[in-house]
Write a protein that binds this DNA or RNA. Structure first.
Length: 921
DNA sequence: GAGCACTGC
C-alpha cells in the first residue's frame, strides 16, 4: 500500500518548538525525529495500516463496528509499533541510557548547575524510571507590571446585594428537601430494588405515582420504541402559537396593528426621534414597540439612504419578529424586511429593515467600524444588559460622535431607562404604555427556609381551592425538543397544568393562559471568579426586575396572581434593583480581544456603561498574552488578529489555527472545537442513568475527553446523522446538528483565510499535542486517585466522574482541561492527558522541565527552558516601554501606574543552562 | 461517584 493512495495519511508533524535547541528530548520523539535511527515513517505507516487491514469490520447494521475495529486496530498497531521499534532498532534503549549518562556528565561538569529556584513551584513526578520535574514560572508581561489600572471598577462585584441577608443565606444552604430526596434515592439504589418503591411524600399528596412527578420524562415511547425527534423547538413553539388567540383569528393584520398602544403615539414618537440623535423608548410588554418602531421609521423615510437595523439579544426573537413585520408590510421575508443571525443571513440588496442579534452587529462593526450601511439603529431589550449589548452601546456611542446623521433608539423596561438616558448625555425618554392585564402581587408573611418546600406548598394551596386533575410538566433548555413541546399542548378538559420551569420561562418563551405564577426568588447564575479562572454556578437571589418579569407572566391573557415566596421587606432590601450586567460577571478574554482588534488601545478609555471589574480584565489580558495573542506591550499579535476572525473563545481559536498551520490535524480539531461549542451531546435522563452511562462509555477514548467527543461526532456522521441512532446511543441530536453547523461555519472561515483543512489520520497524539498548545494555561498534575493540582494556582481539582479518564486504571500524570466548574467540588471538565515535555515546550511561558534530580548531591539540578529567552525579550520590551513613556505620544503603558511594585530581582539560582553544543552530534 | 440557569458570534 503506497502512501500516494492515502493522501489523508500524513507524516508526523513536529511541534513548533525546537527541541534540538535544548538538551532534553523525550525518547519517543527523538526516535521519530531520527531519520537514520531505525524505522522510517513510511515503514511505520505501513505497519499501522496493515494492522488495521486485518481486523476491520464495516457495515451498516453494526453501528460501532468501525469504531471498535479502529480501536483494536489502533491498539494492535501500537503494540506492533513498540515491538518493531525495539526489535528493528536495538539501539533505542541504549540511546536512552546514553542520554542519562550524558546528562549526569553534563550535570557534574557544569558549574551552573544550581539548587532549586525559590521563585518556582516545583512539581516532581515520583516516577522511578524518569525523574521529571516541571517547574512553574511566575512571569508577567511588562504591560501588566505593577498596579496598572484598566477599568474604573476596581473592586470585585458581589453576586448578592447583602451576603448576610436571609435570602443570601438560604441560597447558600440550598434546599433541604432536595438534599433529602437525593439521599433517599441513594438509599433506594443501595437497597437494590429489594422492595417496590411506592412513592414520595409529594407523590402521595397529589395522588400521582412517583415516576410521574419526576422531572425528566423517559426518552422512549410507551412500547419502548425510541421517539423520533420532532425537530427544532423554535419551529414547534412558533407553530403552536398560531391562531391561539381569538383576537388574532378575527382581526386583520392592519386592525391588529392599529390596536397596539404604540400606534396611538406614532406622530409624537417620530417627532422626538427627529429632534434627537438618541431616544430612549420605555416600552412595556404588549406595547408593540419591537414590531412597530421599525415600520414607523421606514414610513417616515429613514430608509431612503440606508438600512434601519434592529438588534435583539436572542436568535428566535430576531427571526420571528422579522417574519411578523414582513407579513404586516405584505413583503417577502428577505426582501424589504430581513434578518441576520449566526449561520443564517436572510437579507438582500433590497433589505431596508434588518433584524439581527446584537452579536451580528458587533461582528459587522469589525469590518465597517462606522456602521455606514445604517441610518438608524434600534437596540431592543437593552435592559437585559446582555454582554454584546453592553459592548455595542459603548461602540455606538463613539460612532454617534463621528456620524451626526446616525439615529439611535434604545428600548428598555422602566427600571433602567434613566441610566441609559444618562449614558447618552441626557437623551429623552419616551414612554409607551403596555397592554397587559392586572396581576395581583402577594408576598410571604415570613421568610421561607426552603424554597422548594414552600413552592410545592404554595402550588398545592392554589390547587386545593379548586382541585381538578393535575398535569405536571417540566421545562428547561437542555430538555429534548419533543418533550419541551408538551408544555404548549392545551390541557384536556378537567385538567390543570402546572409548569415547573427554569428561568427559560422568564424571557425566552411565553405560554398562553398562565393564571398563577409562583416565584421562589432564586435562580442559578453563572458567576466568573477571575482569581481562580473559574465559572461557578451559584444559586442566587434574583433582582427586583426579575421578580416583576416573573410576575408579569401571569397577566398575558387575563388577570392573574403572582406569589413571591419571600417577604416584601426582602424584596425591597435584599434584592438588587436589576441583575448585575453580564459584562461584570463573566470571563472577558473574548471581549477584550475583540476590543483590541477594534483598535481600542487602552480599555480605560472605552466607555462602558458599567465597567467590568479590574481583576477580570487583568486575568483576560494575562490569558491573552500567555496564549500569544498580545505582545509584551499589550498589543495585538498576528496570531491574535487571526483569532478574532473566529467566533469562539480565544483558546479554541488558537487550537484551530495551530491545527492548521503547525500540526496538520485541522480536520479533527474543527470537529472537536465545534463539539466544545455546543451544550453536552450526552443525554442522561434521571431514570435511566446506568443505561445512558454505559452508552456514553462506548465512545470513550481512554486518555482524552476531547478525542471522545471526536469519536462521537465521527460515529454520528458515519451513521448517517440519524436521529434514531442518537436516541439509541443517548445523544442529543439537536446538539450534534448544531455542532455540524458550527463546524461548517469555522471551515468556511478557514477557507476564507487560506488555512488548509487537513487530517492527521490515525495519529491522534498529534491532536493531543495540538490541544496542549492551546490549553497549557489550564494544566494540572496528578496528586492522588482522580485528584489533581492546578499547576499555576496550586488549587486542588478533580476529574469529573463523567470523564473518560475517571476510574481509568492508569491515570496520567499531567492533563490539560477545557474548563473548571465549581459545584460540590472543583471539577475539571473535558480533560486530555498530555506529556510533561509538551507542556514545557508549548507552554514555555509558564513551564520548564528538569530531569534527573540527583538527591545525594543535595538536589543539584539543571533546568532547561525557554525562560531565559523569554525574560530577555520581556526586559527588552520593558526598556522600550520606559522609552515610550518618556516620549510625548507613546505614553500608553505607564501613565496609569499609581505605584510601581518593586520587582524581585531574578535570583542567581534561576540561571539557566543553555547548551550551546548539541549533545548527540 | 456526580448534579441539574440562560444567551450569543
Amino acid at each position: 500500500m503506497a502512501d500516494t493512495e492515502r493522501p489523508w495519511k500524513r507524516r508526523r508533524v513536529s511541534p513548533p518548538a525546537k527541541h534540538t535547541s535544548t538538551a532534553i528530548r523525550a525518547p519517543k520523539e527523538e526516535f521519530d525525529a531520527q531519520p537514520d535511527g531505525g524505522l522510517d515513517s513510511t515503514a511505520l505507516d505501513r505497519a499501522w495500516y496493515d494492522a488495521g487491514e486485518s481486523g476491520a469490520v464495516f457495515g451498516d447494521d453494526a453501528p460501532f463496528a468501525d469504531t471498535w475495529a479502529d480501536r483494536e486496530r489502533e491498539n494492535a498497531l501500537h503494540e506492533k509499533k513498540m515491538a518493531v521499534r525495539q526489535k528493528v532498532n536495538p539501539k533505542f534503549l541504549q540511546r536512552q541510557k546514553d542520554n542519562d549518562a550524558w546528562e549526569s556528565n553534563r550535570m557534574l561538569a557544569s558549574s551552573v548547575a544550581q539548587t532549586r529556584d525559590q521563585g518556582y513551584v516545583d512539581f516532581s513526578a515520583d516516577n522511578d524510571d524518569i525523574r521529571l520535574h516541571l517547574l512553574v514560572h511566575d512571569i508577567k508581561p511588562p504591560f501588566l507590571d505593577g498596579k496598572t489600572i484598566f477599568t474604573k471598577q476596581l473592586e470585585p462585584i458581589s453576586a448578592v446585594r447583602d451576603p448576610q441577608s436571609d435570602m443570601a443565606v438560604t441560597a447558600r444552604k440550598g434546599s433541604k428537601v432536595v438534599k433529602e430526596r437525593r439521599q433517599q434515592k441513594e438509599r433506594q439504589k443501595q437497597a437494590q430494588e429489594a422492595t417496590a418503591v411506592t412513592g414520595t411524600a409529594l407523590g402521595n399528596v397529589m395522588g400521582v405515582k412517583d415516576e410521574d412527578t419526576d422531572s425528566a420524562a423517559p426518552l422512549s415511547g410507551p412500547n419502548g420504541q425510541p421517539i423520533k425527534n420532532a425537530g427544532s423547538k423554535f419551529a414547534d413553539s412558533l407553530k403552536k402559537d398560531v391562531g391561539q388567540s381569538d383576537f388574532s383569528r378575527t382581526k386583520s393584520l392592519r386592525e391588529q396593528r392599529e390596536y397596539l398602544p404604540a400606534f396611538a403615539v406614532r406622530e409624537e414618537l417620530l417627532r422626538v426621534i427627529r429632534d434627537n440623535q438618541v431616544t430612549i423608548v420605555v416600552g412595556q410588554t404588549g406595547s408593540g414597540k419591537t414590531t412597530q418602531l421599525t415600520q414607523f421609521l421606514y414610513e417616515d423615510g429613514y430608509a431612503a439612504n440606508g438600512m434601519i437595523g434592529c438588534t435583539q439579544p436572542r436568535r428566535v426573537a430576531a427571526m420571528s419578529v422579522a417574519k411578523r413585520v414582513s407579513e404586516e408590510m405584505e413583503v417577502k421575508l428577505g426582501g424589504t424586511v430581513g434578518y441576520a443571525i449566526r449561520f443564517e443571513d436572510c437579507t438582500s440588496k433590497e433589505t431596508k429593515i434588518k433584524y439581527m442579534t446584537d452579536g451580528v452587529l458587533l461582528r459587522e462593526s469589525l469590518t465597517n467600524s462606522d456602521l455606514d450601511q445604517y441610518t438608524c439603529i434600534i437596540m431592543d431589550e437593552a435592559h437585559e444588559r446582555a454582554l454584546n449589548t453592553d459592548v455595542l452601546m459603548g461602540l455606538i456611542k463613539k460612532v454617534l460622535a463621528r456620524r451626526r446623521d446616525l439615529k439611535l433608539i434604545v428600548t428598555s423596561a422602566t427600571m433602567n431607562a434613566e441610566r441609559f438616558s444618562r449614558f447618552y448625555g441626557g437623551a429623552p425618554e419616551f414612554f409607551i404604555p403596555g397592554r397587559t392585564f392586572p396581576v395581583d402581587i402577594q408576598y410571604s408573611r415570613s421568610p421561607n427556609e426552603d424554597y422548594v418546600d414552600s413552592a410545592v406548598r404554595q402550588v398545592l394551596a392554589i390547587h386545593l381551592n379548586d382541585p381538578p386533575k393535575l398535569s405536571i410538566l417540566p421545562i428547561y433548555s437542555q430538555m429534548p425538543a419533543d418533550l419541551q413541546a408538551k408544555i404548549f399542548d392545551r390541557a384536556e378538559p378537567g385538567v390543570r397544568k402546572v409548569i415547573v420551569a427554569t428561568n427559560i420561562a422568564e424571557t425566552s418563551l411565553t405560554v398562553d393562559g398562565i393564571m398563577y405564577v409562583v416565584d421562589c426568588g432564586f435562580s442559578k447564575l453563572k458567576v466568573y471568579n477571575p482569581r481562580m479562572g473559574m465559572d461557578t454556578l451559584q444559586i442566587t437571589p434574583i433582582s427586583q426586575a426579575n421578580a416583576s418579569q416573573r410576575a408579569g407572566r401571569a397577566g398575558r391573557t387575563g388577570p392573574g396572581k403572582a406569589f413571591h415566596l419571600y417577604t416584601e421587606r426582602a424584596f425591597r432590601d435584599e434584592l438588587y434593583i436589576a441583575q448585575i450586567p453580564e459584562i461584570q460577571r463573566t470571563n472577558l478574554a473574548n471581549t477584550v480581544l475583540l476590543l483590541k482588534s477594534l483598535g481600542v488601545r487602552d480599555l480605560l478609555d472605552f466607555d462602558f456603561m458599567d465597567p467590568p471589574p479590574q481583576e477580570t480584565i487583568t486575568t483576560s489580558l494575562f490569558d491573552l498574552w500567555a496564549l500569544g495573542a498580545l505582545t509584551n506591550l499589550g498589543e495585538l499579535t498576528d496570531l491574535g488578529r487571526k483569532m478574532t476572525s473566529f467566533p469562539m473563545d480565544p483558546s479554541l481559536a488558537k487550537l484551530v489555527i495551530m491545527s492548521s498551520n503547525t500540526y496538520g490535524c485541522s480536520e479533527e480539531m474543527l470537529t472537536i472545537v465545534s463539539m466544545l461549542s455546543v451544550p453536552t451531546v450526552f443525554y442522561r435522563p434521571k431514570e435511566r442513568l446506568e443505561e445512558s452511562d454505559a452508552a456514553r462509555e462506548k465512545f470513550f477514548v481512554h486518555d482524552s475527553d476531547h478525542l471522545t467527543l471526536l469519536t462521537v461526532y465521527q460515529q454520528w456522521a458515519a451513521n448517517g446523522m440519524k436521529d434514531g441512532w442518537c436516541t439509541k446511543h443517548f445523544l442529543h441530536p439537536k446538539a450534534l446538528y448544531r455542532a455540524k453547523e458550527i463546524r461548517q461555519q469555522i471551515e468556511d472561515i478557514m477557507k476564507g483565510l487560506d488555512m488548509p483543512v487537513i487530517s492527521c489520520g490515525y495519529d491522534l497524539d498529534i491532536v493531543r499535542q495540538c490541544i496542549c498548545s492551546g490549553f497549557y494555561h489550564q494544566a494540572a498534575k496528578r496528586k492522588g486517585l482522580g485528584e489533581y493540582i492546578n499547576l499555576r494556582t496550586s488549587v486542588s481539582v478533580q476529574l469529573h466522574p463523567t470523564s473518560a479518564l475517571f476510574n481509568s486504571g492508569d491515570p496520567p500524570d499531567y492533563v490539560v482541561y477545557h474548563e473548571l466548574i465549581l459545584t460540590s467540588k472543583e471539577y475539571m471538565s473535558c480533560v486530555t492527558a498530555v506529556d510533561a515535555h509538551w507542556l514545557a515546550d508549548l507552554g514555555g511561558v509558564f513551564y520548564s522541565v528538569k530531569e534527573k534530580g540527583y538527591g545525594a548531591a543535595g538536589r543539584r539540578e539543571v533546568e532547561y527552558s525557554k525562560k531565559a529567552e523569554l525574560e530577555e525579550a520581556i526586559q527588552f520590551d520593558r526598556e522600550r516601554a520606559k522609552q515610550m513613556d518618556s516620549s510625548e505620544n507613546g505614553a500608553v503603558i505607564k501613565k496609569k501606574v499609581i505605584s510601581n511594585v518593586v520587582k524581585k530581582p531574578i535570583s542567581k539560582s534561576s540561571a539557566v543552562v543553555k547548551p550551546t553544543i548539541g549533545r548527540r552530534r
